[in-house]
């Protein structure tokens, strides 16, 4: 009995020793040199893998920066913001880039269940892009928010919730402006605006006034009143096709435009 135990200890132990030595040798012999900077950058990135930078995940971005010798812009990580880009600059040994203005995602539609009624009952997959396939969606307005929450689902930071009125809500303190929701929305309703911009237009409809009136009570009818000098003397709003475009997001006369808008299409952020 004893011999069996001893022989197995010896044989298993001997094999362990042999393989261990082999592995130790292989790890030295076939080691792949990893740029320590990549590891360091990954450690400093937020690790959400949201894709805001345009690279496949945080490690992809870190590799791109390190391999290109900081040829790739180092301020593409919007969730990380200025702090992360400063860290990356330090690691790469270059001067820090000027901090970009922080942004936030907004919902450019005010047509909730009450204000923009549906034209038919939709019984299908809970996804806006799928709803769009069936007669261009159930909303009366073919530009308006379908309210099925594809953007909410897509948000990697849990910064969006679906409101009870059928419009998504951006939780601004959680939003990192990664832009995933902007890409997810089949109707282009989500947009990124500077955090300092308090007023934006809550409508993307390209329809003519008559049609907009038919389908939504708060849709922009393109009357261009807000762009008139008597409302915005500084020229902070210009007409861009059927919709007004805010060219100077911090102008003092924007609240006047909000007040004068006959359809109440502007949104004032808190």
């Amino acid at each position: 009995m004893d011999t069996v135990i001893i022989s197995s200890i010896l044989s298993i132990g001997g094999m362990g020793l042999l393989f261990g030595a082999g592995l130790a040798f292989a790890s030295k012999k076939f080691a792949i040199e990893v740029d320590p900077k990549i590891e360091e950058i990954i450690d400093n990135l937020p690790g959400a893998n949201c894709g805001a930078c345009g690279y496949p995940g945080c490690s992809g971005y870190a590799e791109a920066i390190a391999k290109s010798g900081a040829e790739v812009a180092i301020d593409l990580c919007t969730p990380g913001g200025a702090a992360v880009s400063a860290k990356i600059a330090e690691i790469m040994g270059i001067s820090a880039v000027e901090a970009k203005e922080p942004q936030v995602a907004v919902v450019q539609c005010r047509g909730n269940h009450e204000k923009a009624p549906k034209r038919f009952h939709y019984h299908g997959i809970t996804d806006c892009a799928a709803a769009e396939l069936i007669m261009k969606g159930d909303k009366g307005c073919v530009y308006g928010c379908l309210g099925l929450g594809t953007c909410v689902e897509s948000c990697p930071f849990g910064a969006m919730i679906m409101g009870s009125d059928g419009l998504p809500i951006v939780l601004e303190d959680k939003c990192t402006a990664c832009g995933v929701c902007v890409a997810a929305c089949p109707r282009g309703i989500m947009a990124l605006i500077p955090r300092s911009q308090k007023i934006f237009l809550g409508c993307v409809s390209q329809d003519k006034a008559k049609k907009v009136k038919e389908v939504c009570s708060v849709g922009c009818i393109g009357c261009s009143l807000c762009s008139k000098p008597k409302v915005t003397p500084s020229g902070s709003i210009e007409m861009n096709g059927n919709l007004p475009k805010i060219v100077n997001p911090t102008a003092d006369d924007l609240p006047m435009a909000v007040e004068k808008c006959p359809t109440n299409s502007f949104v004032v952020r808190k």
């Binding site: 299908g124 997959i125 799928a130 396939l133 069936i134």
Partner: peptide, 13 residues
């Protein structure tokens, strides 16, 4: 199950 709708959606993607 709404297969056809799912497949239309999948084909689009």
């Amino acid at each position: 199950i709404r297969h056809v709708h799912l497949f239309k959606f999948g084909k689009m993607h």
